[in-house]
Design a binder for these strands. Structure first.
Length: 112
DNA sequence: TGTTTGACCGGTC
DNA sequence: CGACCGGCCAAAC
């Protein structure tokens, strides 16, 4: 808790790792879950650095509208869509379809 | 040490 | 409904 700032990136990574396959969450939701509401940008910033960690499913993190804002940051940009599609998440025009259904709130845990 | 920048969000118009 | 504006906080320069 005290070293929250130091571990902020790790905190984000931990949450992202918890995202179930076939589900997506938002930067804001993660930030809010970490008690840093309004600091969604930091989550995105953390994700940018997350490239060094292969175990982090960054493709399951999108913005609030379900838009794949992080797409250009992927190795081949299509990698993000590819992975999501393989997990059963329908993506069209860089936007997650049925986003409300696919959305997974960290605070909600492993709900259906 | 101060400034700039970002894989964003919420409220307003 | 879509477009716009201000704010948020850490890292990089």
């Amino acid at each position: 808790v005290k070293a929250k700032r130091q571990n902020f990136f790790d905190q984000v990574y931990q949450v992202v790792k918890l995202i179930p396959a076939g589900r997506v969450t938002t930067y804001g939701a993660i930030a809010s879950y970490l008690g840093a509401r309004g600091s969604a940008r930091l989550v995105g910033y953390a994700m940018n650095a997350a490239h060094a960690y292969p175990d982090i499913p960054a493709h399951r993190v999108v913005n609030r509208v379900g838009l794949l804002t992080g797409k250009p940051h992927f190795n081949p940009p299509c990698e993000m869509i590819d992975r999501l599609t393989k997990e059963g998440v329908e993506v069209k025009n860089d936007i997650v379809q049925q986003f409300e259904v696919r959305f997974w709130d960290p605070a909600m845990g492993l709900d259906i």
